[in-house]
């Protein structure tokens, strides 16, 4: 075990990690930040996506030591300090872009990375970008709409009738 230091959501943190300690494990177990989820062990599902130095990565496919000194952003740091949801989080609620919530942290973090790269994506671009995020509940329909809406594009209201 050796000490790893990094910044998570703007806060300097440190903790002991083995060589094999994954960043996801470090966040969940060492730091107690259980918002980041682990849904697979083959780097496919994307529930564990966080940002490291501004880039979306799968925290289950990166060692804690590789993040030494890095700026890490997780789902816990997305809302304002007073609890106000950011525009992506709010759009996910408004457009029913989540059901069980397990894939949601990764979806929100991937969506944030997408909109940083491409502020007005087309629907096809959103769907392609989500290749590494699996959701079993929503059929993606409302996730795609939520991300489109978060980008400021016109999206019909939910359950129009």
């Amino acid at each position: 075990m050796t000490e790893v230091k990094m910044t998570v959501n703007g806060r300097a943190v440190s903790g002991d990690a083995e060589g094999r300690t994954l960043l996801s494990t470090f966040l969940r177990e060492t730091l107690g930040m259980t918002g980041t989820h682990v849904g697979c062990d083959t780097s496919q599902c994307g529930a564990c996506v966080v940002h490291v130095n501004g880039n979306a990565v799968k925290s289950c496919t990166m060692f804690a030591h590789e993040a030494a000194g890095a700026e890490v952003a997780t789902i816990e740091g997305q809302a304002a300090p007073d609890g106000t949801l950011n525009k992506i989080q709010q759009a996910f609620q408004d457009y029913h872009g989540l059901q069980c919530g397990f894939c949601t942290p990764g979806m929100v973090m991937s969506a944030a990375a997408l909109l940083k790269e491409n502020p007005q994506p087309t629907e096809a671009e959103v769907r392609d970008y989500l290749e590494g995020n699996i959701c079993r509940c929503t059929g993606y329909h409302n996730i795609v709409r939520a991300i489109m809406a978060a980008s400021g594009q016109e999206v019909p209201a939910v359950a129009a009738e």
């Binding site: 918002g35 980041t36 609890g83 609620q93 029913h96 919530g101 949601t104």
Partner: peptide
């Protein structure tokens, strides 16, 4: 809107 969403969207 779903009230459970807030905790799921904030990692809580």
């Amino acid at each position: 809107k779903r009230r459970e969403d807030v905790r799921f969207l904030t990692g809580t």
